[in-house]
Amino acid sequence: MLDLVNVKKTFNAKTVNEKIALNDLNLHLNDQDFVTVIGGNGAGKSTMLNAIAGVWPIDQGSIVIDGTDISRLPEHKRAPLLGRVFQDPMTGTAATMQIEENLALAARRGEKRTLKPGITRAERSQYRDQLATLGLGLEDRMTTKVGLLSGGQRQALTLLMATLKKPRLLLLDEHTAALDPRTAEKVLQLSEKIVTENKLMTLMVTHNMRDAIRYGNRLIMMNDGKIILDIADEEKKRLTVEELMEAFFKASGEEFANDRALLS
């Protein structure tokens, strides 16, 4: 279970650039909830994910996972609970390290790093099998530097790294936004497969309304640092893009000012 309680975050407080990014945000996720998150630019979608991950401290409120308040923990101490995939394919992997080295780092998420070997033979064969499930041929390129992979391959690898050690919560932050449509589709399907197989509690930010409707069991819409729409299960299945646009207009009093969302 995840609970965000009255979470507040203001950037550049007391300056002309002051921006209230999260405004008394409240959210409850049940185990196995796969929630898609949509909203305009600056609505607070990525900010919410970063707040959970602990990229910076929040100003007020609390973030609770399974009854433990993690809102005061530094980023690396929250890592054991969280799997993360970022918008920029460069962010989730170490470009100058090999594929298998990246996986070995991820396999030790939340564990004490000792003077034991950084990667073992048993791990290598395990990684080979798991890479094969991606269907990208990466299992034959285990010692290739990740910097040589394409954006889609890197996102698929990051996805595997995020779930190699089963997280309590998977955070997908527009992780297909930088990919071409065909690759994006592949990575999305792979994400769904991994989430379903591992029964992961997931928050997936997307700019694509159709994807937001198609994936997951629940959809939330954000505006001005708040959740303005929360639709689940059967009701979500019947949603259309037009209805979503209308709902956005009603709730926020603004047009859905996001070209990418309209065009895709």
């Binding site: 980023e75 690396h76 780092l105 998420r109 000792t114 950084g118």
Partner: peptide
């Protein structure tokens, strides 16, 4: 040393800090 878990975490920190913290490394 740089082949151990600890040494690898140093290399990862140099390669990508954001990723390292996401993987639980105290950078």
């Amino acid at each position: 040393f740089f082949g151990t878990e600890l040494g690898s975490s140093l290399r990862a920190t140099g390669a990508n800090e954001a990723m390292s913290r996401a993987q639980g490394i105290n950078t």
